[in-house]
Design a protein around this nucleic acid. Sequence first.
RNA 1: GGGGACGUAGCUCAGUUGGUUAGAGCGCUGCCCUGUCACGGCAGAGGUCGCGGGUUCGAGCCCCGUCGUCCCCGCCA
Length: 612
Amino acid sequence: MCGELRAANAGQHVVLMGWVNRRRDHGNLIFLDLRDRSGIAQVVLDKELTPEGHLKGEQVRPEYVVAAVGKVRLRGKDAINPKMPTGEIEIEATELRVLNDTKLAPFSPAEDAIANEEVRLKYRYIDLRRAEMQRNFWLRHEITRSIRESLSNQGFLEIETPILCKSTPEGARDFLVPSRIHAGEFYALPQSPQIFKQILMISGFDRYFQVARCFRDEDQRADRQLEFTQIDLEMSYPRRDHVFGVVEKFCAAAWAAAGITLPTPFPRITYDEAIRQYGSDKPDLRLPGLTDVRSAFPDGSLDTLQIDPALPIVAFRIPAVGELSRKEREDNHPLFDQKKGAKFIDDFKRLAKSFPDTVTKIRELSGAAEGDYLIVVAGDPAHHIKASDTKFEGRLSEREINVYMAAGNFRSELAKKYADRHKAFQLTDELVQTADPRSGNKLDGSNAFHPIWIVDFPMFEYDLASGKWVPAHHPFTAPYEADMANLTTDPASVRADCYDLAMNGLELGSGSIRIHRKDVQQQIFASLGISEDEAKQRFGFFLDALEYGTPPHGGIALGLDRIVMLLAGASSLREVITFPKTAKAIDLMADAPTTVSDQQLRELHLKITQRS
RNA sequence: GGGGACGUAGCUCAGUUGGUUAGAGCGCUGCCCUGUCACGGCAGAGGUCGCGGGUUCGAGCCCCGUCGUCCCCGCCA
């Protein structure tokens, strides 16, 4: 392989095959940089040594596929290129064969400048030749392999589950697959192997995992594709801590595969605390969180400032942003979500005119340093949004959550915007870029990656649109024993034994201890307003299975694409998925989706009634 | 479904207040060059300014619509 040759290989006869990365023609001497997956090696075509090879060298162009036959030789002292791993040697060619020519590519994989994404996706095969992409997918392979190995070593069996499933209209929209054999009936692609993996526990497989492709027909985001891969696992007789231990182990292995150490165990935080401290259920711990600054506001000031006294008042700071002009601050206003019934104060000079002590105290409480961008978020009494303010002992009300979330979202938007000033994210970028997994050395990831378990989620959320309680996780999640009594009386107070894993502001995974008793399952369905008939129709087979000696079980699923994205330092999943879809769910290379022939439709008993 | 950014040469981008023939770098083509490695030198080709309409004496620039890509909200148990 091109990139593997070193001084120790000098004298060896080699045949190198690859793409012409660059050509430097000096007349009677031509240099070709030959590229394959492993890297680049320089081939020298000397007219005196190989007139025929030299002639072909004059004809080749970048991205031609060629074979160079020759001898590895040490370069002269002056000719050594310290920037290349293979810089100490070159191939003295005796022969050059053109294996294939090429049309002029729309962009060059050898260039540093990256073409726009539309072009990259259309010519994905060329884009994937770029060293960065080659590295991303090599990394993905290594990460996946280390996770497989870690889970296997922890006694987990990799088991496949069906892709053609039964549609269960819960959660995300299903992708449907029409049945040819059964007119008018459909399979669904799995949103996750949830029910199957639980049934595998009932089947006695104890510990299961799968690198599972999942499908959700929802709108895309930078961190969401229609089609994605989960590390899905389930185990029998676990407590939450067992699941955490398993995940922490394979995460450490995955990070190690990327050349980074990830300290375990991961810290934990309850859902309520995550909301209170970060205004998010996937907090980014790389920056300071929210501070309760209620005490900074004297009696009476809230009325003047038109702040709702019943709701939280919090401050956050984005470090080292520097002085912002009035216009710069105003440009940031659209980043604040007005719809949550919250407002913010970012003009402290103005606030200081009426309440100088308040400003001093806010700075003190939040630990703001000179140059930090400071924001206060509070409830807006004028802006009454429809939300339940029912408050249960010790739990956050929906309106409180809204204020915290408004602050949390604003915080992460501003953090993103001023990333080059506070430099907290740069640390992560630099680490993944410096890490060299192949060398075997591991860099310390403790300052760049901040995993955190979120626990004690509410079991239910109140859905304003339907006026119903809906499961915050999924309907197979076990409630806390202690909260079971409140199931019908106080649904909002019931905590679920489920957990999320978040890292650097990204949700990496989500899981729970499941319900293993049919009576409990039926109670949950009842409190969700799902009738017995309905439950039977949707999940009948699963409810049946629950009756045949179901062991207590639980598990989790982690987004593999997101893990790879983090470790590749990518800002979008598309950088770590070979053939991704666009934001409008289109495959630009293959041109999918498309219409199909009438013949195909007839076979599937389908009729298109409207074509926009 | 909604909000925002972008769309100019193969690629990356500039294009002033609406004003003559739309520019640069890279790439491409041809010629020259024996130590380059982002090689260098000389010459050259290359444009439906996303598309459609409007305003105007005149539109890459202003207005309306539309398409595409990206980001966000909704949505994602």
